[in-house]
Amino acid sequence: MVEPAVRISQGSKFFGEICAFRSINLQVPEGQFLAVVGASGSGKTTVLRCVAGLERLSGGSIVAAGRPVTRPDPSRTYVFQDYGRSLFPWRRVAANVSFPQEMRGKGRRVARERALGYLELVGLRERADAYPWQLSGGMQQRVAIARALAAEPSMLLMDEPFGAVDAQTRMELQLALLRIWMELRKTVIFVTHDIDEALFLSDRIVVIDSRGQGLAMDEPVDLPRPRSHAETPRYDLYSEMRASVLRLLLREEGSEAPHAPTTQ
């Protein structure tokens, strides 16, 4: 069997007494677009941060590309929701995108040359010399994606990246992301609380159980590609999956938890 891009075995994370998640078992094959959905507070962002190496697991293990994850590595880059902070305001757009290469000791010229290539890919080459804060939110998140790609990772970790932009811009960004993903075929783990976004983008959806019972759902999304905002939601499979994820999330949020919640 081919080694998966990521393998989480019995992963758990506690902050003091508080459980972020528990009993997570998950394998992500190379090149897959995985959407991670969960109620707020279910620990989905923490899972992603653990995969990135920004947090250490409390129990269990994460193996990425055959090696245990202990700290961040440029082979797994991260796109933060808070693009306004994550993009460095003191660097112009191109210099933000060349940052990962500069940190690896590449010369500025070479790093910039590559950065311009990735800016081209996200359609922002002509804004290379602007400051990020001079761009719209959607453009800023494109720059952040270009920067994440410029590290030339094998895996892209995205934490609700489109959560802070308006609906129209979000759709444009989703399409741009899919286009880039089809072109580069990197593994993507995409955390979102938006079911439609998860269904529209992914090959597979997992729902994290907010009571710490591991994964509440793990289903392939066998919708044809390329996807379109007008057509994809019209498939029966789309509405069926949407309903079952929704039931799962609402039941979890609204229920008297049968198990005592760890967070009190």
């Binding site: 961040p72 880059t77 933060f80 994550s86 460095f88 990962p100 590290a151």
Partner: peptide, 20 residues
């Protein structure tokens, strides 16, 4: 978030100080 961004892209040691 700024510090995390630096870590994700491999800013370590003096580079972390000078560049982040």
């Amino acid at each position: 978030v700024v510090l995390d961004t630096g870590r994700v892209f491999g800013a370590q040691g003096w580079r972390r100080w000078v560049s982040v």
